[in-house]
Design a protein around this nucleic acid. Structure first.
Length: 637
RNA sequence: GCUCAUAUAGCUCAGGCGGUAGAGCACUUCCUUGGUAAGGAAGAGGUCACUGGUUCGAUUCCAGUUAUGAGCACCA
């Protein structure tokens, strides 16, 4: 005799065990039709789930967040059914709901073609139309393994064997002839999927995410409660593509890439101007924060990399050279060893600590070809790197200062909610747990004492130490690590202070090993640049715009005055160009607007006469006629 | 690195079931001197990514290489 408590606090009494659907029916037939699933005591369950005891129940309909995930998971099942109907012999593996959609990984000799995807989507719509009831069944483990084994579904057998503990039952979801191992829950029938889905693309993916395993074919789809939301999503994707930094980089003449230098950037004048603005900005912020700036060699002897451990661990990702005399050098993949040599030069006292040593270091890494991605993943990039040498007692405060600095800097670029990832000790690591406790503690204490939220990524730290990552998102929702903070301390293998045997003289007159913090704020200047382009859609704020002002004439008569204005503005440090081409003013305005120049100055006879300029903003707003110095104030404010 | 796809003018893209290619924009010259998102005309511009194979003949078909794109793996 279960008593059901609904979200509004009301109670309903039933004489016999009831399903979620029964309850919905009891409330009203309209609700029953809309019912997709239920929530019993907070757990998401099928609509057919039977409740035997008193419980808090909520009916889940298309309006609820949870329904969307079910919908997407269902879409994956329907797609798998469609694929197996169309291409017998294809094995199913796994197919979860993901952000914005779903995917399913298939094992099949032949590759799926774009035409196949069209057919698959067609068949999916058919299956939806069939409105097959989705029914949960249970099998004991052995039967399940035999059933799937008989079907030749070796991957499924492996999943059951691996995931389901011995003696436990396996839940199976069936829709028509087709069924799959699944934890559930699911929608009541395939018809509930509606028409808000679309098969998007096919790509390779390793079985169980391990590159030693076979490569499967992953088909991605997107699914939404209705067609309208699907359209809105596809529209968002289109809009995002317009922000792509690779596209804008070409259109705005910022940079280009070339086949002969994969993963390295050719910076054009405007891009390089912006790049240098970023460096100048960072230089100022670091100087204010008590950093000194140095520069270390790009090419250093192999023995240095052997000492640092990079040769052993990352050799295949390093660019190396052999000279006539057979000496082997490597292009630096990191700045740390150079920094350590800098620290080791001369005697350091505790009075020098904390020593915050920054470097705009050009590093080269031979990244796997498939990893390269515009400016966001390159082989040659510039780090705004710094190493802070300090005592153990100073460590935590230094961490706090770094985190505050990063967040403050990101705010200057309009990134207000930065995701902080905290990656702690991985399974394969070196160093004692005691040291790991200390290292992780330093970072966590710093975050906690600031009241700063962060996301835990258990086991994702580097093998030699935990790390903090500051993550920014690109136009189409991919996350990229930008800033980082890592602690490097005694007895851990990568430990550079130990490997290079550096020390400082403490108050007691003895030599002590410093703690070393590795940190980068932008991270990679190239990557940050790319993210910025997408973030602003190329419409940089005035202080970052490579060209801040274009002065243009209406007829040749005003040319001398235009040149005079250009000179005056340049003397004020304003990045100005003039456009004296024999073109109509509308044409020039269009061009420079497309180039996202913040201010356009138009000069005709009136302006020459009055010694003024007509000012137009990037948004198309007419700011009226201003005197030169008035305009200078406007730009500089 | 792996799977799939793509590579034609500076850019965006057509095209050809094998007979060395075309548009728009950009570029050059001329006309036009025009007040806030495209004035007009003419011209120039291509080893059809690279290497090899098949063929009388390859930009087109085949193979390999390189680069790029999507995803996976990787990211000190």
């Amino acid at each position: 005799m279960p008593q059901i408590t609904l979200p509004d606090g009301s109670n309903r009494q039933f004489d016999n065990p009831v399903s979620v659907m029964d309850i919905a029916n009891d409330i009203g037939p309209g609700l029953a039709r809309a019912t997709l699933a239920g929530k019993v005591n907070g757990n998401l369950v099928d609509a057919a789930f039977v409740i035997e005891q008193d419980a808090a129940v909520a009916i889940v309909t298309g309006r609820d967040e949870e329904a969307l995930e079910l919908l997407r998971h269902d879409a994956a099942h329907v797609m798998a059914q469609a694929v197996q109907e169309l291409y017998p012999g294809t094995q199913v593996t796994i197919g979860p709901a993901i952000e914005d959609g779903f995917y399913y990984d298939f094992a099949r000799e032949e590759a799926f073609t774009p035409e196949d995807l069209v057919e698959i989507e067609k068949r999916m719509r058919e299956i939806v139309k069939r409105d097959l009831p989705i029914v949960r069944e249970v099998m004991d483990r052995a039967t399940a393994m035999r059933t799937f084994g008989d079907l030749g579904e070796t991957y499924k057998v492996e999943i059951i064997d691996d995931i389901i503990p011995e003696g436990e039952e396996v839940s199976i979801y069936r829709q028509g002839e087709w069924f799959d191992v699944c934890r559930g829950p699911h929608l009541p029938s395939t018809g509930k999927l509606g028409d808000g889905f679309k098969v998007m693309k096919v790509a390779g993916a390793y079985w169980r995410g391990d590159s030693n395993n076979a490569m499967l074919q992953r088909i991605y789809g997107t699914a939404w409660p209705d067609k309208k939301q699907l359209k809105a999503y596809l529209h968002r994707l289109e809009e995002a593509e317009k922000r792509d930094h690779r596209k804008l980089g070409r259109q705005l003449e910022l940079f280009h890439l070339h086949e002969d230098a994969p993963g390295s950037v050719f910076w054009h004048p405007k891009g390089w101007t912006l790049f240098n603005l970023l460096i100048n900005y960072m230089r100022k912020r670091q100087e204010d924060a008590g950093y000194i700036e140095v520069n270390t060699p790009d090419v250093m002897d192999r023995s240095l990399w052997e000492t640092s451990g990079h040769w052993e661990n990352y050799r295949e990702h390093m660019f190396s050279t052999q000279t006539e005399d057979e000496r082997v050098f490597a292009l630096k993949p990191m700045n740390c060893p150079g920094s350590v040599l800098m620290f080791a030069q001369g005697l350091k006292s505790y009075r020098d600590l904390p020593l915050r040593m920054a470097e705009f270091g050009k590093v080269h890494r031979y990244e796997p070809s498939g990893a390269l991605h515009g400016l966001l993943r390159v082989r040659h990039f510039t780090q705004d790197d710094a190493h802070i040498y300090c005592t153990e007692a100073q460590m935590e405060q230094e961490c706090i200062d770094v985190i505050e600095l990063i967040l403050d800097i990101y705010r200057d670029f309009g990134f207000d909610d930065v995701v902080i990832k905290f990656s702690d000790r991985p399974e394969n690591r070196i160093g004692s747990d005691e040291i790991w406790d200390k290292l992780e503690g330093a970072l966590i204490n710093a975050l906690d004492s600031m009241g700063q939220a962060y996301k835990m990524f258990p086991g994702e730290g580097a093998f030699y130490g935990p790390k903090l990552e500051f993550v920014l998102r690109d136009a189409i929702g991919r996350d990229w690590q930008c800033g980082t903070l890592q602690v490097d301390m005694k007895q851990v293998d990568m430990n550079l202070p130990e490997r290079f045997d550096i020390s400082y003289v403490a108050e007691d007159g003895n030599r002590h090993r410093p703690v070393m913090l590795h940190r980068a704020l932008f991270g990679s200047l190239e990557r940050f640049f790319g993210i910025l382009v997408e973030h602003y859609e190329g419409k940089f704020p005035v202080w970052l715009a490579p060209v801040q002002v274009v002065v243009m004439n209406i007829t040749d008569k005003q040319a001398p005055y235009v040149e005079k204005v250009e000179k005056m503005l340049k003397n004020q440090g304003i990045r100005t160009i003039s456009d004296l081409r024999n073109e109509k003013v509308g044409f020039k305005i269009r061009e420079h607007t497309l180039q996202r120049v913040p201010y356009l100055l138009v000069v005709g006879d009136r302006e020459v006469e009055e010694e003024r300029i007509a000012v137009r903003s990037l948004g198309g707003e007419d700011l009226g006629s201003l005197a030169i110095d008035e305009f200078v104030d406007l730009v500089k404010q």
